[in-house]
Every structure is written in C-alpha cells, then in structure tokens.
Design a protein around this nucleic acid. Structure first.
Lengths: 148, 148
DNA sequence: GTTAATGCAAAGCATTTGCACACGT
DNA sequence: ACGTGTGCAAATGCTTTGCATTAAC
C-alpha cells in the first residue's frame, strides 16, 4: 500500500504519540475520540464524532469532543479540512493527500492519485509574496451513490 | 493579461448577464451586491459584503445580502470557496484559478500560476467511482504582512 | 496534591426561515 | 396586477466560554 497512515492502528499510534509528546493526559474521553478518529476515513464533523463517541462512553459531553478536537489540531496531529459547508470537518491523516467532495451529498473522500504530486512545480513564493508552506487539491464531482 | 474576468467591468457584466438569463429582477439591492462583488478580489464573507454594501444603500438588510449571495451561487455565477474557517467566502471569478490563504491572518488571495493546470493529469473518474467535475488547489503559507 | 480536563449551561457568531409588505417587470 | 424580492424578528446550527467539579499524573 502506498498510502501511509492508511490503517487504523497506525493512525491511532500517531495520535497517541502526539498526545504523549505534548504532555497531554490520556483521559477516557480523549481515548474514545482518538479511537473514533482513527477508524474513520470519511472526514467527520465534530457532531458526527460526538454521535459516534456517545455510544461508547455514555455521558461524554459535546463540549469535550469539540475541545479534544481543537487540542489535536493545535498539536498538529489532526487537520481541519477546507470545505464549502459552514462546519468543520476533521482528518486524522496528516500525510499529504487530496480530497474529492460530492456536490450533491457533500460526502468527502480521500484521493491518493500519485500523478498529483506538485512538489517540483510549486513555487516557493508567489507573485503576491506569500511563502508557501503546503497545498492541497480539492476535486468536486458526483459520487456513485448520487449518480444513480 | 492572461487572466479572464480579472477586471471589474467584465466581472460585473458576467454577473448581470447571469441574472438576466435566469430571469432575476434587477433590484437596487441586487445591484449593489453585484457591484461590491465585482470590485473585490479578496473573497469576502457574507458579512464583509454586508458591511461594504451598507455604506451605499442604507437600510439594506443582512438577510438580503445572504439571500442574494445564495441566489448567485445557485445560478452559478458566484462560487462559495472552500476554507477552513466556519464561515462562507464568496468569489465572483468563476474561471478556474487557485487560492492561497495565510495561516496567520486568514487572508485569501488568487493564484494564477499557469504551471498548475492539471487538465491532462486529472482522472475523469477516481478509484472511488466519483465523476470529477472540477478541481481547485489550495495553498497555505504566510503572507508578506504577517512575515514581518 | 497539583494541574489539567470535563460537564453543564449559557453565550456567541453565522446563517436560515416565516411572514407581511414593497417593488420590478 | 402579478409574482418575486425585501425587511424584520425569531429560530436554528455550529462552536466557544465561564465556572465549579473531577480525574490524571
């Protein structure tokens, strides 16, 4: 498989390592959020994660889920992904990859097409004087479910 | 200039044409929103547009600005652009181009680097079965203002 | 035992909706 | 005149914050 961090176990370890290295306490709540993040590849919103996590740890609060996610983004092990909805979506895969979203149902999936590596073509600085740090490509289209 | 729709007049005409072709009434409110959109290249949020427009047409309501924008997105002359904030940003330039956003101040600017045309490399359909309609590249980096 | 993390409830933005009135065609 | 578009106010959805309690190290 040419996609690092594609598997649950590896993602989970990456998340745990990040927490440990940043001195974050491993609470029950953090653990279930980490688990939920690691086993999904569908870029869930905070509320979707909250729903997933509530089944496993009764009583966990929505606030905690939001706070755990912000903490993980803060230490860099999770990314908030860009999308046209007005709602954050999270991605535990921090290896560079791209996304495609369905313009009908708003689903977002990963793209691993290797032809898309721009590394050599990307200017370090732009006409406008920006120093470029990273990039990602967002495709839009229609998913198989919505086409039928 | 290799960038179509780069100029205010042309953008405005494109917006007006779209409205006419879709049978939309040209109200004073729509006119000022169209003007405001055409003369900006900074991908304003609905509220920024509302502020801009309020100066010219006292009494226009925030609701109307939101509604006009949604209508324009609906007929395809304006795009909601993807960004990691939880707030929509609008772009009256529907010619394919890319964006760079500053990770410090969240500013978003256009990129017209011609080397980035992926047309030939982009698969029509993905592993996941999506039919691709469009794409855009999002760069992130630090803008000149924030670097100093 | 300290310090950091959680839960609750309330507040804060961004956005949408229902309904009565006004305006463009 | 007709139907669409607007304004207002209230509702909704997503997210954040303050504060007292609880749990991790």
């Amino acid at each position: 498989m040419d996609c690092p961090l594609a598997f649950k176990k590896e993602k989970l370890r990456h998340l745990e390592d990040g927490c440990r290295q940043n001195g974050l306490a491993m609470t029950v709540q953090r653990r279930v959020v980490l688990d939920a993040l690691a086993e999904r590849t569908d870029h869930p919103s905070a509320d979707q994660l909250y729903d997933a996590v509530r089944g496993r740890l009764r009583g966990i609060s929505r606030t905690t889920v939001y706070r755990v996610l912000e903490t993980l983004v803060g230490i860099g092990v999770v990314q908030k992904i860009s999308n046209p909805e007005s709602k954050a979506r999270y991605d535990a895969n921090t290896v560079r990859h791209h996304h495609i979203h369905c313009i009908r149902c708003e689903k977002i999936e990963d793209m691993h097409t290797p032809a898309l590596h721009l590394a050599q073509q990307v200017p370090i600085a732009t006409e406008s004087g920006f120093t470029i740090v990273d990039y990602s490509i967002n495709f839009s289209g229609i998913c198989p479910d919505c086409r039928s």
